[in-house]
């Protein structure tokens, strides 16, 4: 464990906490893409298949349980909670995430480290996570008003993967034969997708103006 990975995990945890707080306290999910939340639930479900078979550490298991519980409860809230689901703008959140899932599944079947069910599922979860934010970014472009909780959520979500990239560089430099191209490339693609959001978010924060994404 290194500081980059720990801060990356904490930033990731913060992002789901911010989102849950927003939904739970003000009972609103305005501006949040259900498609992205469903993709994240899929990411954790396919990545943590070995949660009860391969014990890594107490920290690892607890964090996996937290990510699974929060992502599925956010999806539940947005779909079934009688008040929250009223603030979900389904007309705007129309990204067909099946067009993301299928290519990721095909790619995971072709490009993976080992052709076993667990490994292919794990690789699939990496590819899905890389593109999971797209429906959310599309929704942000459409709904002009980005409230700052949503802005903070997306920012933290992007920052966690950027910290992971530092973690991979650190581990590559300190651990022999720590080479994992699939993880590195999908992590890099994921972070690059946030690049323009980061640019506008930091600018709006610097000029202390409301976050506006260009049309």
């Amino acid at each position: 464990m290194n500081i980059f990975r720990l801060s990356g995990d904490m930033t990731h945890l913060m992002s789901v906490i911010v989102l849950l707080l927003k939904i739970h306290t003000i009972k609103s999910c305005a501006g949040i893409s259900l498609k992205t939340q469903e993709l994240y639930a899929l990411v954790f479900a396919t990545r943590y298949l070995d949660i009860f078979t391969d014990f890594v550490s107490v920290y690892n298991t607890i964090m996996k349980l937290i990510f699974l519980a929060t992502s599925f409860s956010i999806v539940w809230y947005m779909r079934h909670h009688k008040i929250v689901r009223r603030s979900y703008d389904k007309e705007q959140d129309t990204f067909r995430h099946l067009f993301l899932i299928l290519p990721c599944l095909i790619l995971a079947l072709v490009v993976n480290e080992k052709f076993t069910f667990k490994e292919v599922m794990w690789t699939f979860s990496l590819y899905v996570e890389a593109v999971a934010i797209l429906p959310q970014l599309v929704l942000l472009q459409r709904t002009k008003n980005i409230d700052n909780l949503t802005g903070q959520y997306v920012f933290l979500l992007g920052a966690y993967r950027a910290l992971y990239i530092l973690n991979w560089i650190y581990r590559y430099l300190t651990e022999k034969h720590f080479v994992h191209w699939i993880t590195w490339i999908s992590g890099l693609v994921q972070t690059l997708l946030y690049a323009d959001f980061f640019y506008y978010y930091i600018n709006s924060w610097k000029n202390n103006v409301r976050l506006q994404l260009p049309a």
Partner: peptide, 10 residues
């Protein structure tokens, strides 16, 4: 074994 060590990430 790098495999298991690597899968220690979330």
């Amino acid at each position: 074994e790098t495999e298991s060590s690597f899968k220690d990430e979330l």
